[in-house]
Nucleic acid binder design. Structure first.
Lengths: 344, 344
DNA sequence: TTTTAATCTGCAATCGATTGCAGGAATTTA
DNA sequence: TAAATTCCTGCAATCGATTGCAGATTAAAA
């Protein structure tokens, strides 16, 4: 516990009476070291319990083999799954992850990003916070020559690599499904419109209504119904209308949908016959509520893997000529469950 | 995107025609630099978009202000909450987190730990994997002068800082509660007994039975019922007994308890009147199943904060004389819900 | 046997920031 | 005015690993 001194390549070199450079080469399996010497060095290194000092190595090499990740909250299902995916893919390539949470605060997000720049990470992966307005700090990442990949919640105007869900398409399918089940007045619980993902979900909702020649009614659109509580609150308002909706698309999250379900249950409104409910994200619990909740799966772990692999792929192609900002769109999947199954 | 070259303190020094050491001192707000010069340096640094190279700094200072975390899976509720807690406390102290997942594999766990040692993290926080048998790699952490903190799943024989739940006490309370609700034949779904936490939960179960003068019946104890599927399987076996249990304590997890509930529901067995169910962990979904599931809250986020703060506290006390291996035990809380409420 | 080529090995610089030490300038005290 | 302090500033070494280059050794070719 006390031996602060770690063995370095110099210790090994001294012990074997050779140069540190040879030790370094041997430990990096360079072929300009004699096989026998190499073996001896490796053996000695093990005996002395040598551990390479990655800091020194990285400093010299000018890269850190580290990816920085910034998400609003680590312990939100979607994000923790994405992170798990990133970790899995990164680990295989020998990369490490530094994780930060922005707590949905731009101010903290900026600090996180700066820390990661200081740490000389090779790449920063971010899903921007809800209150983010400008993106200087992200531009700064690029200016420092660090690869930037945005996922899910992206700042559209920034030309970076992006991995997103096709939110509009998914919403369109969800609402179309509701319409096909015979629901006539479909309400929308929408999220903060400064985030593109929520604008897209709203667009999908509107497109679906238009496609089927149905009117878009402002009174059926509830702003900022993000959490379970806000979802519940919005639902109460909606159901108090003279002409209440017969279906609610909680485009913000499954938590919001859960709020809807609880209010409906409390008011004795039958789901799905009197009210259809559709959530977003396919949280684990949507399967076990009664009735189970129709929702949209975002393939979050896969999304994480995609993000990481996109980086490695981009690394591989050294032709700096081709700096096309790539966007990978993952098609989410509508999971139809009891909460919207009116026919058959 | 191309300016690979970052500004260093030398660039600032050259521009102002002073020595790099002064720049360094100024940026570290040392009071041995003239106020005016300091201001000028800081201003120039900002103009040149200078970012300190943490790698170089850490290499020189011999510390990294980084905490490494190893958990079985990042995207398991309990662990992601603990990580969130660690992050919150660490961020305040200016520490970063490097996160790894062991996938419950000792082999990967060893690799993760080695990577973290190479990274020169200041502290490693770990919850050991289920199949872990020996702990040489953890001893190695200590031998390298790195602080080691174990949480939740700990290797008892290693004298390190530990943050644990009082699993035995929690189980005892849970089972006592079942008994007081009038359940007579209480079964146990147990986890891998090489993990201390599961041994403790079993001990709590047995103690409770003894306390009330009830027999411990082997046929009512099901091994390795960790997941929802295994929980369901175990439940089917139990309910097939000549004398089936009238309550099941899924000591492994809430997922297991969910498996129990699903089987019971499918077989038309009424919960809680005919069968009581108690889970472990207070997963979000336990509140919304019907009936809701009685479970045990582990205060996971708080646990994470405790871990981090324990480290900082230990840092603070420089008296190396006192190297007492501290153990902090957090008392979990029994959350009584519908699945066990038979009386009142 | 001499020339050429292939293989190893070591020196020394480098990555960027930090810090002990020495010395010069400015200020205070005698 | 001389001596003693205080205050700044810069030099140079250091953290540990990597790598271009040159020289040495050995093997192969002429």
């Amino acid at each position: 516990m006390k031996n602060k001194k770690r063995t370095t390549i110099y210790d090994i070199a001294k012990k074997l009476n050779i140069a540190a450079s040879s030790v370094s080469r041997a430990l990096n399996n360079s072929d300009q070291v004699n096989e026998a010497t190499k073996k001896l060095i490796i053996k000695t290194a093990a005996e002395l319990n040598y551990k390479r000092n990655t800091l020194a190595s990285n400093l010299r090499k000018g890269q850190s083999k580290t990816i920085g990740v910034v998400v609003p909250f680590i312990n939100q299902n979607f994000f923790s799954n994405v992170i798990a995916g990133i970790e899995e893919a990164s680990y295989q390539k020998g990369y490490n992850l530094i994780i930060c949470q922005s707590n949905e605060l731009q101010s903290k997000e900026i600090k996180c990003v700066n820390t990661l720049i200081n740490q000389h990470v090779d790449c920063i992966v971010i899903s921007i916070s809800a209150d983010s307005s400008d993106h200087k700090h992200l531009q700064n990442v690029l200016d420092n020559g660090i690869q930037l990949i945005q996922f899910d919640r992206v700042a559209d105007e920034l030309e970076t690599l992006k991995v997103i869900n096709d939110n509009e398409q998914a919403s369109l399918e969800a609402v179309s499904h509701l319409i096909e089940q015979g629901y006539k007045r479909i309400a929308l619980l929408e999220g903060p419109q400064n985030l593109q993902i929520f604008r897209q979900r709203k667009a999908g909702y509107i497109n679906a209504l238009k496609k089927y020649g149905m009117p878009v009614l402002d009174e059926l659109i509830v702003e900022n119904a993000w959490t379970k509580e806000l979802g519940a609150e919005g639902t109460r308002k909606l159901l108090d209308l003279v002409e209440p909706p017969d279906a609610i698309f909680a485009s913000t999250s499954d938590f919001s949908a859960l709020g809807v379900l609880e209010v409906a249950t409390a008011m004795g409104i039958k789901v799905p016959s009197e009210l259809g409910i559709c959530g977003y994200s396919n949280e684990a619990f949507t399967e076990i509520t009664s009735p189970s909740i129709t929702t949209i799966d975002q393939f979050s772990v896969y999304m994480g893997k995609t993000v990481a692999n996109l980086y490695f792929q981009e690394m591989g192609n050294k032709d700096d000529t081709e700096t096309v900002p790539k966007i990978i769109s993952i098609k989410p999947k509508l999971i139809v469950r009891s909460s919207t199954k009116r026919n058959g």
